[in-house]
Amino acid sequence: MKIGSARDDALYMEELSQKDTPVHRIDPRAKIIVNIFFIFTVLSFNRYEISALVTFFTFPLFLMVSGDLPAGYLTKKLLLISPIVVLIAVFNPVFDRETAFILAGAEISAGWVSFFSILIRFFLTAGSILILIASTGFYKVCMALERIGVPSLFVMQLLFLYRYIFVLLDEGARMVRAHALRSFSDRGIKIKTFGSLLGNLLLRTVDRADRIHSAMLARGFDGSVTLNRRIKFRTSDAFFVVFWPVLFILMRRYNFSELIGSFFLRIF
């Protein structure tokens, strides 16, 4: 069952990318460049930074709202992968026990600060990539990567991965279903059976790869795949590429949350 839902998930992302909003219309290259810039800026902060990072949520939020993307769904996706990050970050509070600041009488250790800093960075970077794909489509992202200068071999790998992940998931789902129908228990798959299922799937995959390769050869494949699609870079794209990185630099240079905070403190 789970395999089936993974497939639906991927298809849903594909559906989201078919929408027609200002964000969807931005040149994929522009989106990738801004995203890379975004990720590097976010990662460049020192490990105890929290307040300045928070301002960076403007970028994913802006894309999500103007791209008409479902916040709940994307957050759920992020939460699903977050345990891995938590696992990595969770040792910080254990090893880094220096007091960072005191909040409402409780000592907050530097470890906890860096723990949350890592989590925020994760949500920012993984979130922005998720939004990039949801608002662009995996395929266009690959195409743009190629145009930007990523080696075509690498791009091809991604494309084929994406094309056949559905076929593989279908095949996997069928095998699991066939197993479930004849195993008469809901205990899941035994390790031994699982091994042979997986082996079987691998063999099928190899066979399929073989057939796909002959299909490619049959149509004149000679080692390189060219995507025949022109994308137009418009003035609004240029604005996008300039505006956001400038904002990122400003947000990196000046801590806006602190500035706004002190501004309000001064008023009241």
Binding site: F138, Y139, C142, R163, Y164, R208, R211
Partner: peptide, 10 residues
């Protein structure tokens, strides 16, 4: 096996 590209056009 034959339709290995991501979109019909390609």
């Amino acid at each position: 096996d034959q339709l290995f590209m991501p979109t019909v056009f390609d």
